[in-house]
Computed example of a mutant assay.
Amino acid sequence: MQHASDPYDDEVLYDPPGPAPVHYAERALLGALLLEPALLAALQQLEAEAFSNAAHGALFSAMRRVPVPEPVRHQAGPFWVNAVLEAALPDARGLTVSYLHTLISACPLLTHAPAYAAIVRAEHARRTIRMHSGHLAQDAADTALPDRATSVLARADGLAQHLDELSGRFPAHPGSLPRTTVPPAPAGGTDEEVLDEERMLLASAAVRPSAIKEMRWLTADDFTLSAHGALWQCLNSLSHRGDPVDPVTVLWEAQHHGLLASGFAPDEVVTLMSAPAGSPEHWGTRVIERALLARAGEVARRIGAYTDDPATTVHQLITGSRRALADLTAIRTRWHQATAPLATPALRPGVAVSARAGPQRPGTTAAAVRSASARPTAGRTP
Rank of each mutant, 00 (worst) to 15 (best):
A330M: 10
A368P: 09
G188F: 00
Y24W: 14
T96W: 10
V299D: 00
G358Q: 07
M63V: 01
E26N: 04
M1H: 08
D164L: 06
V314P: 08
W283T: 04
L100D: 07
L293K: 07
H256S: 15
T102P: 00
S226Y: 13
A338C: 00
T364H: 01
P244V: 00
A20F: 08
M131K: 14
S226W: 13
A227E: 08
S279H: 13
G350N: 10
D9H: 13
L159W: 05
L225M: 11
A338W: 00
S105L: 15
P209W: 07
L163T: 08
H336T: 13
L30R: 00
D10M: 08
R64Y: 03
P67Q: 11
A265W: 03
L272D: 00
P17W: 12
R27K: 14
S176A: 15
R73K: 10
Q255G: 15
C107E: 07
A227G: 05
A355Y: 05
A20P: 01
G284H: 01
P359E: 14
G278M: 05
D308A: 15
M215K: 08
A106G: 09
R334C: 05
A372H: 12
T143F: 12
V68S: 01
F170Y: 09
D327I: 03
I288H: 08
A330D: 13
S5D: 14
V22L: 06
D9R: 00
R179H: 15
V194W: 07
I331H: 06
Q255A: 15
G57L: 01
L145S: 08
T111R: 15
V248E: 11
W217S: 06
A92E: 05
A205Y: 02
V66F: 09
G188W: 07
S5K: 09
A58V: 01
A368Q: 10
A140G: 06
D10N: 03
S98N: 09
E70G: 13
T111N: 12
Q255V: 10
S204W: 03
G57N: 02
Q2F: 14
A32K: 07
E214P: 00
Q316A: 05
T307N: 09
A366F: 03
Q360A: 12
P280G: 01
H124F: 11
Q161Y: 07
S279G: 09
V97T: 09
R73N: 04
I119K: 12
H282C: 04
A355K: 06
L292C: 01
A367F: 11
V207D: 02
H315A: 14
G229C: 03
T344S: 10
G278Q: 02
I331G: 00
L317F: 10
M215Y: 01
F170H: 12
L33S: 05
A55N: 14
E47F: 11
V97E: 09
Y116P: 01
A187E: 15
T339C: 13
R370D: 08
A338K: 04
P16G: 00
H74Q: 13
T339N: 12
A366I: 04
A330Y: 11
T181G: 06
A58L: 05
V269H: 03
V22F: 01
D157I: 11
S210A: 14
E165H: 12
A340V: 02
G350M: 11
L235C: 10
G188H: 13
A42P: 05
A227I: 01
V250W: 07
V351H: 14
L145C: 06
A367L: 10
S239N: 12
A160T: 05
P67C: 10
S98Y: 09
T111G: 14
M131Q: 15
L13W: 11
